[in-house]
Amino acid sequence: MSKNILIIAEQRCDRVQNVTFELIGIAKELAKVNGAEVEVLLMGHNIAGQVSDVVGYGADRVILVDDPCLASYLTEPYAQAATEVIRERTPGVVLVGASSIGRDLAPRVAARLNTGLTADCTKLAMNEDGTLEMTRPAFGGNLFATIVCPDHRPQMSTVRPGVMKKCDFDASRSAEVVHKEIAFAPQKIRLVEEVKVCSVVDSIEDAKILVACGRGVGNPTSIEQAKNLANELGGTYCSSRALVDACVIESCRQVGQTGKTVRPECYVAFGISGAVQHLAGMEDSDYIIAVNKDENASIFNVSDLGIVSDANKVLPLLREEIEKLSRA
């Protein structure tokens, strides 16, 4: 049994996903406590070109499984490869991104290894003896629980995308690359069609400025104004669950417990009351501006600039003010 931390990388659309770099970032922090190494398992087909990305973000060792069986994500071949690599490397900790792929793969692997798995963690802490404290929200973000896995190894956790910080990219880093061959079992599931929307433009997780709308921004005009504002500020727009449920805003723009976690430089919330589920997804933003008619709205508990006013009336005026100042 090693004390190392193994990260199962997620690559889609020929790119290693951000959550993998975030996992390397937190793993480097955890590894400082007990002197562990950070290993990254990269699975796919024709992915050798992606090795330098995970190395540049801090991997100490890369285990590469490159096989046509892994060209598209399918549970069984990925689970088989991950399980065999984990059995061979015997890491003390295995981290997986809590994406739809990670949340499909990790429980399958954990059950096969007969170990515990803590879902959707938002905080990880390492003890000197190598035990990991995994903190996650429950009951829709109303409660947090710190979970440990004392007697089973590896300790496994899926980690929420957007929560951990990645290291700065260092192109000069180098790391050992271990090639691993897997004899894949015949597949029971056939892939008939795969449609990928690989657009990374306009992703709310990458935006520096987010203009967020909630239930209080009820009419189409105000929403249009918020979108324009986001555009003018060089950011993009997002929303709380209410407007996604009402089919006014696309679900990929939902911030919160059941949506995405964001931490932009500036988060401007219009007409958002601030349910715990929403706050969980945006409270780590660098600067939060909130406008809401209700002075008791919970959004004000996390805002740096809280303004009690009607968002629908502020929005059109704000555009004029910004024009004035940007000309000045």
């Binding site: 973000g141 979970i147 896995c149 706050l279």
Partner: peptide, 23 residues
């Protein structure tokens, strides 16, 4: 294999300053 070590609620500062302003 997993055990709950502790549970807690998130504490928010409910006394933050808010400005009541016209639009």
């Amino acid at each position: 294999p997993t055990k709950v070590k502790q549970t807690f609620n998130k504490q928010y500062n409910t006394n933050k300053q808010k400005l009541v302003l016209d639009p």
